[in-house]
C-alpha cells in the first residue's frame, strides 16, 4: 500500500492531496501517524506541508466544488478519526470528478460518510451551545470547561462572544488543553492556559444551588423517564453539568 504521511494540520493534508495529483499517484491512505498498520508491504511517503500547494487546492475546492463542500471538509477535519485524511482525499477526488453536484452522489460511500461525520460535528456544536456551563471565578470572569468529541472550541466562541458580550469568559476544552479567552471585545484561541486559571477558586455556590433546585422541581414525577433523558443528554456530558452531579 502507498501511504502518505502528513503533519496533522490542514495545510499538510491539502499538500498531500496536491502531491497525489502532481505525482500521478493514488495513495491508499493519507494519515498522520506512520505507526498505523505498519507492514513491510507498505510504502510510506513523508509529505512536507507547503502553503503555496495547499492554497492551490483550497482555491480549487471553492472554484470547482462548492462552499458547502468546503464547510463539510472543515467539519470532518475537526474529528480525531485516524482515517479522516483518507476520507477527505476520497471525497475531493469525487468532488473534482462530479463538480458542485457531488453531494447528491449518496451512493458513493465517501459522500455519505462525509455527510454523516460533518453532521455529527455540527450537532455537537449545537449541543454545546446549550450544555456549556460557566461558573463565576473569584476574580470575576466566567469559566466553563468541557470535553467535546471534536475540536470545536473556535466554532463555539463566536456564539458566546455575541451572547455573553458584557462579561469576561473562558471556554476550556480539557481534552485538548485549548481554550478560548474573551475580554468583552474579542476572543482568542490559545493552548497556553493562563496561570490565573489553574489557581482560581470558585465561589458560585448560590447560583449553582438555585439551578439545581430549579432542575429538580421542574420534573413531572409522574412522567419520569431516565432513558429518554440519557438519550437526549448522553452521560459522557454529565461531568461538567452541575445539575447532574450528585
Amino acid at each position: 500500500m502507498l501511504i502518505y504521511v502528513y503533519d496533522g494540520y490542514w495545510e499538510g493534508l491539502l499538500t498531500a492531496v496536491y502531491e497525489a495529483y502532481a505525482r500521478h499517484e493514488q495513495p491508499d491512505q493519507i494519515v498522520t501517524n506512520a505507526r498505523l498498520a505498519q507492514s513491510w508491504l507498505d510504502q510510506y511517503v513523508e509529505i512536507t506541508a507547503d502553503s503555496e500547494k495547499a492554497s492551490k487546492v483550497a482555491r480549487s475546492i471553492r472554484r470547482k466544488i462548492s462552499a458547502m463542500a468546503e464547510m463539510r471538509l472543515d467539519r470532518v477535519f475537526r474529528s480525531d478519526d485516524p482515517d479522516k485524511g483518507t476520507l477527505i482525499y476520497h471525497y475531493l477526488q469525487l468532488g473534482y470528478q462530479y463538480g458542485p453536484g457531488v453531494d447528491n452522489y449518496l451512493h458513493e460511500n465517501a459522500v455519505l460518510e462525509m455527510h454523516e461525520r460533518s453532521q455529527r460535528v455540527n450537532f455537537e456544536v449545537h449541543r454545546f451551545e446549550g450544555l456549556m456551563r460557566f461558573v463565576r471565578t473569584d476574580w470575576g470572569a466566567f469559566y466553563a470547561q468541557f470535553s467535546p468529541d471534536h475540536h470545536i472550541t473556535d466554532l463555539l466562541a463566536p456564539h458566546f462572544a455575541r451572547r455573553l458580550s458584557d462579561q469576561n469568559w473562558i471556554i476550556h476544552d480539557t481534552k485538548r488543553q485549548i481554550a478560548a479567552l474573551y475580554n468583552q471585545k474579542e476572543w482568542i484561541l490559545t493552548d497556553q492556559m493562563p496561570e490565573l486559571l489553574t489557581a482560581s477558586s470558585y465561589q458560585d455556590q448560590q447560583a449553582t444551588d438555585l439551578w439545581k433546585i430549579y432542575f429538580q422541581n421542574i420534573t413531572i414525577t409522574e412522567r419520569v423517564n431516565p432513558r429518554l433523558q440519557r438519550q437526549m443528554m448522553p452521560v459522557r456530558y454529565w461531568q461538567n453539568l452541575p445539575e447532574m452531579s450528585k
Binding site: G130, L131, Q167, F215, T219, P226, L241
Partner: peptide, 27 residues
C-alpha cells in the same frame, strides 16, 4: 440580537440547555 454592552440574543432554531428527569428539554 444583542445590543452593544448588553447581554443575550435569540437563536432562530432555539437551543436546549438541559433535560429534566422526565426527558423534557429545558430551554
Amino acid at each position: 440580537s444583542n445590543k452593544a454592552g448588553g447581554i443575550g440574543n435569540a437563536n432562530a432554531a432555539g437551543i436546549c440547555h438541559s433535560w429534566s428527569a422526565d426527558g423534557r428539554c429545558i430551554s
